[in-house]
Design a protein around this nucleic acid. Structure first.
Lengths: 137, 137
DNA sequence: CTTGACCTTGGAGCGACTTCAAGGTTTATA
DNA sequence: TATAAACCTTGAAGTCGCTCCAAGGTCAAG
């Protein structure tokens, strides 16, 4: 089998936009694929589509491109220790926890502003008052 | 008083970087300030610094620039109904809730991957396995 | 009078795409 | 067979909200 696909087919198979595949190729996250003789179209093997799916999944999990790049490198060296993957995942988890904490704090503040707002004119608005510094106006 | 400040002083007073003030002026979020005759330096009044502080605070609360722009417009029309401010805040709160939900789901997934990882080589890595599609490799 | 801290402008860089324009190729249909 | 629709190609610009830089002008302190 090892079906050879166009970029559109690879995009459909991996769940990634074709433009995005070209972008990943441009920044060197993907090797340059072979091309058709006649139309110079990119062609992708099932192995390359698996790589695409890996990237898409890692990005969905929020790993930055550079970490994805490192993980792709690691998958090419099966004998290496997976501690590095564990570490990357830990760091990523921590950054997500920080983001959640930040957003939760914001959430509380916004909610407090909303409940203190009882309508009326902009002049009386408690929300704008809460944002505005040292002024009830 | 109505002290006239340079951009650096206004930056210090509002807690916003000077580059940032120039940026907000460039995108039309701030009116062009008056300038000194001799050196063509921007000068800011206390009212303008209050505006800067408002912007900084709204941005800290995560409101996008365009919403900040709208709120600044509203503060110039005191007699208007503050329902629009309430609506903007509601929408913003909802988008924050969506982000928190997304990040929490990610968090769980990453945590599951971490607890399933028991070290070993990259070949055996459960984390990479969880990311990789249809392959135990 | 020099040093250093400030200010000016325009433009590039960041992350991770997304969209566009202007063409070439392939495939399906009439 | 002609042609139209659907695909592919490239390079460049736009998105968001800054952030940093270079090359120069200005100003206050010593």
């Amino acid at each position: 089998m090892n079906a050879s696909m166009t970029i559109g087919e690879a995009a459909a198979a991996s769940g990634m936009a074709a433009d995005n595949i070209r972008y990943y190729e441009k920044i060197g996250l993907l090797a340059k694929p072979s091309r058709t003789a006649t139309g110079n179209y990119r062609t992708y093997t099932t192995a390359e589509v698996q790589r695409l799916s890996f990237i898409r999944r890692a990005r969905e999990l929020g790993f930055p491109i550079e970490q994805v790049r490192e993980m792709l490198d690691l998958t090419r060296h099966h004998e290496r220790d997976c501690a590095r993957v564990d570490q990357l995942t830990h760091e990523h988890l921590q950054s997500i926890d920080r983001k959640i904490a930040d957003l939760t704090a914001l959430r509380h503040e916004l909610e407090g502003m909303l409940t203190s707002c009882h309508g009326g004119t902009v002049r009386e608005c408690r929300i704008l008052g809460a944002i505005h510094p040292g002024s009830s106006n």
